[in-house]
């Protein structure tokens, strides 16, 4: 049991963080043009909207929620001091969890069912989506079965994560947690480890500058309404952008 605990809650987090750091730097230097989400919006748009938008709204809320509870646990506890505020936070987080889960199911279905998307899918995408689905499922399970996670995260998980970053891992409280909470933590580190090797790298190169850069005017110099048979040769212009 000690071996299991030491591996998953001491060694593995460090392996994940180191792999994340080295892998990220290596991939950015070695394959800079693949350092993106490898968007498939040009291939399919309708289902993407109902998958990608709820997924991203949910995951961004959850990511920053977990980050806040880790960085300033005291203030989360202060917020939760009034039961009404605690309920509002928990309900919002649970809604975000469901949005993320449903959005990801939609994206996964799209990836497996749409022939155009299947063409640009690799094993890493499938593995990553299954891992994310499992992780979010565990998260929802924890939130439902062991309620007020926002409060006990601040008391139990935040000190553990802090101890990891202080190079003095304290796992006493973690090893006493229910199995599903432990699995949620282990899967989180596994996903962190996989970030550099999957399309998840895009979260590190979010194009924030798009928010303030001027609009770009795109000019097409052929008839855009004309439907082109992709099997025919180019009669107008061969695309020059790739």
């Amino acid at each position: 049991m000690n071996l299991y605990n030491n591996f998953f809650f001491v060694a593995f987090p460090y392996v994940a963080v180191i792999m994340f750091l080295i892998g990220t730097i290596y991939r950015y230097r070695a394959t800079k043009f693949k350092y993106s989400s490898i968007a498939s919006q040009f291939l399919e748009t309708r289902r993407l909207y109902w998958g990608s938008v709820p997924f991203h709204w949910g995951i961004i809320f959850l990511f920053f929620g977990h980050l806040t509870a880790f960085l300033v646990p005291r203030y989360v506890l202060l917020w939760n001091q009034q039961p009404l505020r605690l309920a509002i936070l928990e309900i919002t987080a649970f809604v975000a969890g469901i949005l993320t889960f449903l959005g990801l199911i939609n994206l996964f279905y799209r990836r497996l069912s749409n022939p155009r998307i299947k063409k640009v899918t690799n094993y890493a995408d499938i593995i990553l989506e299954i891992l994310l689905l499992t992780e979010i499922f565990f998260g929802l399970w924890v939130a439902y079965a062991y309620r007020w996670g926002s409060s006990w995260f601040a008391v139990v998980i935040a000190p553990y994560l802090k101890s990891i970053f202080e190079f003095n891992p304290q796992t006493d409280a973690i090893v006493m947690l229910p199995l599903v909470v432990q699995l949620h933590i282990i899967f989180a580190f596994l996903i962190l480890l996989l970030i550099p090797f999957t399309r998840l790298v895009h979260l590190l190169v979010f194009p924030l500058s798009y928010l303030w850069r001027p609009y770009q005017k795109v000019i097409w110099n052929w008839n855009r309404k004309k439907i082109r048979n992709p099997k025919m040769g180019w009669t107008i212009h061969k695309p020059q952008n790739n």
């Binding site: 005291r74 506890l77 939760n80 001091q81 039961p83 079965a145 062991y146 309620r147 007020w148 996670g149 409060s151 006990w152 601040a154 008391v155 139990v156 947690l177 229910p178």
Partner: peptide
């Protein structure tokens, strides 16, 4: 400034907000 008991524990008591289940 310790955490409240309700973060992890529940009690059944009339008029009391339900506590945590950890």
């Amino acid at each position: 400034n310790g955490p409240s008991c309700i973060s992890c524990h529940n009690v059944n008591y009339a008029g009391m907000f339900n506590g945590g289940l950890l």
